[in-house]
């Protein structure tokens, strides 16, 4: 099923219901993307006010998560969807949760930004290179995972899975780098630890983007590819062709 014709049900109301789920997930996704970008920027530009904005917006994300779940429950109860419709609803509930968790991580990053500022701001740029690099990669992943969903695009989804692997590697080397800084200059430990927590959050956001990408593959092909390596996923997809 390359094309999920969600607009072709006999019941037009059903079309609308599913279309709403999709729209609301994408809206939530857009909001979360913004949160992640703002949180990273708050650290980089030592902007506590921006960090405070992230903390305030977090409530809005929580509210949307609950509302979207409620919507999914109603579709299940009213329509008893089957096949691709069923997979869409299930996928939306799961991706919804992943997005909300991303929001939580953005919230943590914002807290780190405030902590860093309180401790005297960017007295030393150590760790910022890593933060910027991983921050950019992760934001690209979140963006791609949402694109993959919007277009039901499995190829993009696979790119996200691959990209997340790269982020994990970058995260590993950043950790080694930052450990060295701390050994060289024990006074920097508190500050570097805050960067590490922020990096940890970014890495988690990458994992959630990967989850969403996996949900997209499930939605399009009905294949559950959780806990599966990229190689295996590609092999399974090839088998389908």
């Amino acid at each position: 099923m390359e094309n999920l014709h969600i607009d072709q049900h006999i019941s037009r109301q059903f079309n609308t219901d599913l279309e709403h789920l999709r729209e609301h997930l994408l809206e939530m996704g857009g909001l979360v993307e913004e949160q992640v970008a703002d949180a990273v920027r708050a650290i980089e530009s030592a902007d506590s006010e921006l960090a405070e904005k992230v903390l305030r917006t977090e409530d809005e994300i929580d509210r949307r998560e609950v509302a979207l779940d409620e919507e999914c429950t109603l579709v299940l109860a009213r329509r008893q969807p089957a096949a691709s419709d069923l997979r869409l609803v299930l996928m939306v509930t799961k991706a919804n949760r992943d997005l909300e968790r991303m929001g939580d991580e953005a919230d943590k990053i914002a807290h780190m930004a405030i902590a860093l500022n309180d401790a005297g701001g960017a007295t030393s740029p150590r760790g910022f290179v890593e933060l910027r690099h991983i921050g950019n990669s992760v934001q690209a992943l979140v963006n791609q995972s949402l694109d993959a969903f919007a277009r039901f695009d499995v190829q993009t989804a696979i790119q996200v899975v691959k990209g997340d692997k790269q982020v994990d590697r970058d995260y590993g080397s950043a950790m080694r780098e930052l450990a060295t800084y701390m050994m060289e200059d024990p006074r920097s430990i508190t500050r570097v630890m805050n960067i590490i927590w922020a990096l940890r959050s970014l890495e988690r956001i990458g994992d959630h983007a990967r989850n969403i990408a996996e949900h997209v593959i499930y939605l399009v092909h009905g294949m559950d590819v959780r806990h599966t390596s990229v190689g295996e996923i590609e092999a399974q997809l090839e088998e389908r062709e």
Binding site: E23, L26, E27, M28, G29, G30, L31, E33, E34, A37, D38, L146, D147, A150, R151, F152
Partner: peptide, 15 residues
């Protein structure tokens, strides 16, 4: 930083 709404509309267009 695209707003939630514009991103959504953009993505939907492509779809």
């Amino acid at each position: 930083a695209p707003t939630a709404k514009t991103v959504q509309v953009e993505r939907t267009k492509k779809t």
